[in-house]
Each structure stands twice: as structure tokens, then as C-alpha cells.
Design a protein around this nucleic acid. Sequence first.
DNA 1: GCCAACGTTGGC
DNA 2: GCCAACGTTGGC
Length: 137
Amino acid sequence: MRYWLFKSEPSTWSWDDQVAKGDAGEEWDGVRNYQARNFMREMSLGDHGFFYHSQKDREIVGIVEVCAEAHQDSTTDDDRWDCVDIKAVKPVETPVTLDMVKADQRLADMKLVTNSRLSVQPVTEDEWKIVCEMAGI
DNA sequence: GCCAACGTTGGC
DNA sequence: GCCAACGTTGGC
């Protein structure tokens, strides 16, 4: 099992939107960045990820699960772009803000901190555990 | 709303 | 293949 982080602007696609899709899940489409796409290609069914709200909120708000491995992004005919499907697993007890992540030295290497523009990123097992603890999970 | 950082595009 | 120009993202 590997761990990831999915970033979204809540005004475009929020945690609530994701939860509304239930177990059917939803394509994580629209990614037009090779690094992010490559990470999605590495994902396996059942991998878990954090759902992060960028922009105004800047906090991790929920846990998601990969429910379909990488396939053609249905929003484009360009076969360079693949995406996975994810479904909401559960919300966090306490949102973990970007400030909280930055304040914890153990999380200093998270892509969220070092490469803020990357919209799909890998999370190490250690980082996963630490953030889950902070989130009250 | 601004701007820095980054990725992509296209001319040479 | 290099690099300048441009567009986009996201933190502040």
C-alpha cells in the first residue's frame, strides 16, 4: 500500500463534492502535468491518499482511496493524459493545515512544503502516520 | 490581488 | 538542444 496526496481548489472540486459521489468515486481528471500524471500511473487499487484543499483553506480535510487505476482522462482525447478514480473514505477529525505541516520538522520534506505547485504527490509511510495522528485518525 | 516558482511552448 | 516568453498555480 502506498500513500498519496490529492490537491484541489474547493471552488472547483471540494471534499463535499467527493463525498457526494460515494463509493462510486470520481475521476481525478484535468491533470495536465507530467509529474502528477506519472504518480497516478504508479497508483494501485486500494492505495490511500489525503484530500487537500488549496487556495483559501490550505488544509487536509479527508482520506480517499484509489478505486480505479490509471486510465484515459475522459475530459480529453489526448492520450498523453491518464487519471485514476478516487472515492472518499472518511473525513478527518481535525483538518491538518499547511501551517501545521510546516511547523512540524518531521514533515519538512513533504512535497506540500517543498513543491507546493504539484497537484498529485507521493506521501511516505512515516509522513502518512504523522499527519493521521495530527488529524485525529 | 499580487507575485514567485514552476512547467510548457516555440523560435532559433 | 537551448532558452526566452508565456501561462498557470497557489501561498501570502
